[in-house]
Nucleic acid binder design. Sequence first.
DNA 1: TCCCGTTTGCACGCTCCTTGCGTGTCTTAT
DNA 2: ATAAGACACGCAAGGAGCGTGCAAACGGGA
Lengths: 159, 159
Amino acid sequence: MISVDAFDLKILTALQDDGRLTNQELADLAGLSASQCSRRRMRLEEEKVISGYHADLSSEALGFGVIAFIQVGLATHSPDNSKRFRALVNRIDEIQEAYSLTGDADYVLKAVLRDLKGLSNLVNDVLMPHQSVAHVRSSIVLDRLKESAKLPLRELKAG
Amino acid sequence: MISVDAFDLKILTALQDDGRLTNQELADLAGLSASQCSRRRMRLEEEKVISGYHADLSSEALGFGVIAFIQVGLATHSPDNSKRFRALVNRIDEIQEAYSLTGDADYVLKAVLRDLKGLSNLVNDVLMPHQSVAHVRSSIVLDRLKESAKLPLRELKAG
DNA sequence: TCCCGTTTGCACGCTCCTTGCGTGTCTTAT
DNA sequence: ATAAGACACGCAAGGAGCGTGCAAACGGGA
């Protein structure tokens, strides 16, 4: 079992905020020496508690003006059809997130696009015509209140 | 205006995949020298094209078993009420993403929780009773096909 | 109390980062 | 056509950061 103590939590919280922190900076934040932070960080990476590090790019600066949520209903719920749909989703870079949900729709996709033409293209020329898909309904994001991938570690106690 | 050339795109693409890449590794990938990659990276950070670096933590390893999408309708659409709701969303760490959308609901939230009890607590004890909120409908994620925050830089041409 | 496994801080050799500098290229004005 | 300026490049050097070895400190069980 993976055990994460209070020091690990401080390190994880800090790296979640800034993935380029120096071991010395981590040490100052966590109250440890730099070498120890290095060792703990390596262990957390080894155990896949830290699954990776990523640069966060500005969609505005790079000209991605449209975010959309797309609800998709499948034509049939056969394993084959699901597989086809998953393969489709995986090869479309514009789809950042994809989930199957309880409730109305079979799947919800979150897509990032350059403009509405890009959304139209994705919905009408890629998703709709695909054999696995029965119906599609898209909602455009008007305002982004919050967008991060940070886990709420605050409440976690050492284990 | 921010200009991003083909070298910058290679650097951004690489850092989006691995935010801890060495300047030398970037150099090998982009076909530049390490010092030049350092300079370009600093410029991209300065211009906020790179808005930050983050460690990606494993929700499974840390015991977050539930992801939910929560559709929220506001009681009124007055500016005051919106403001109250936004403040609420901002101070709840379990809410990773929050958007206002076209279509049925006013807002959609994505929340990460330890278990269903955590979701129940968020929906019934925090969101529902809040004065700004009229109705709430939550959908639980059954399966995560894809989850990243990578922008589809593939298609971008130098500008 | 003693023992053993674990965790820690420190020191050191090695890698990596950044800045200064000289060179080559492209653009613009004469 | 040519001179001058701006820009991006690679190289080299000095300084910062990284990870491993090691000995000391700590903590739980016999």
